[in-house]
Amino acid sequence: MSSYLFSQENEPDEADSVTLRDEAGRTLDCYIENSLDFDDATYLLLMPVDIPIVIIAWEDEADSEEEDDAEAVLLEDNEEIELIFADAKAVLEELNLSLKYTAYTLTVSGELPPIEDEDILTLELDEAEEGLEPEELQFLASFYHQEQRYSIYTPLAPLLFLAKSNVRGDIELVTPEEERMQYILEELLFEEGD
């Protein structure tokens, strides 16, 4: 069982996908889960083709090997990711997963191992952000780099992006914080659930 709701037998065809590009020139292929025409623009709800992953550094674990006693720090700094990328790629290859340095999120291709209850980490998000639910992550692998312990996880909930297609057909990400975008996001999510 994988973290994603679709199987390879019923994946959308390539006409239902787009490629996002970040400022560094990295790309991320995404399926178009839903679209909505609104105010002379087309808004898209996108989900990565490959499986998103996160890397967590464990802080303050000198006294304990238990993750419960250590603070989880989500790696978001590109320089630090580049330093450990080769090690992360090597440990994931042992699981027959291929790590990719894609735009907006790291991804892997391959088949995820079955989900085991003891392999689920519940990540409490920033308490300052009200209304955010804790995120559940599936453990994939751990490794050390220069005596620092890292773990690789994949989110159990699908990672979705909100994007806008302009008149030239270029795709750009939009943030859902603005009130108008909240309406569009709700419409895209509601239609997808039907």
Score class of each variant (00 low, 15 high):
Q138T: 00
F38T: 02
N166M: 08
I184E: 13
L5E: 09
P155C: 09
A86P: 06
L95P: 09
L156F: 02
L45V: 13
Y43H: 15
D40L: 05
Y150I: 04
Y144I: 12
F139Q: 05
D69M: 09
L185K: 08
T42I: 10
H145Q: 14
Q146P: 05
L140D: 03
E111N: 14
V91N: 07
L173F: 15
E71M: 08
L140I: 03
F190S: 14
A72I: 01
D39S: 05
G131F: 08
L92Y: 10
L160V: 06
P158L: 02
Q148N: 14
V167W: 15
D68W: 03
L83V: 11
D39K: 08
F38S: 06
D117Q: 10
L159C: 05
E59I: 07
A62Q: 14
D63T: 04
A103M: 03
E67V: 12
R168F: 10
D126A: 12
E127C: 04
A86K: 14
S35Y: 09
N10P: 01
E80G: 05
L140F: 05
L121G: 01
L189H: 03
L5P: 02
A163D: 10
L75M: 15
V174Y: 09
Y101V: 00
V54N: 00
D60N: 06
E136Y: 01
I32S: 00
D60W: 03
L112W: 08
E191K: 12
T154C: 12
D77P: 10
L74V: 04
E147H: 11
L123C: 09
T42P: 02
I115Q: 04
E65C: 04
L75W: 13
S17E: 03
C30K: 06
L74N: 02
F161E: 03
E65V: 14
L95E: 11
C30A: 08
C30N: 07
A128H: 07
F38L: 00
T19R: 11
V18D: 01
E93Y: 10
F161M: 03
D77I: 15
E191V: 09
S98D: 13
E124G: 00
L36R: 06
D39H: 07
V73D: 15
L137F: 09
P176N: 06
A141N: 09
Y43S: 12
E76H: 15
E59N: 13
G193M: 04
E127H: 11
I81Q: 12
T27E: 14
D117T: 02
E124Y: 00
D117M: 08
P52M: 02
Y101R: 13
E79P: 02
K89V: 02
S2K: 06
T107L: 01
D68A: 13
A70I: 01
I51Q: 11
L112V: 03
C30P: 03
E118D: 07
A70E: 01
K89M: 13
E172L: 12
T102I: 06
Q138G: 03
E130P: 00
F139T: 01
T107Y: 02
I32A: 01
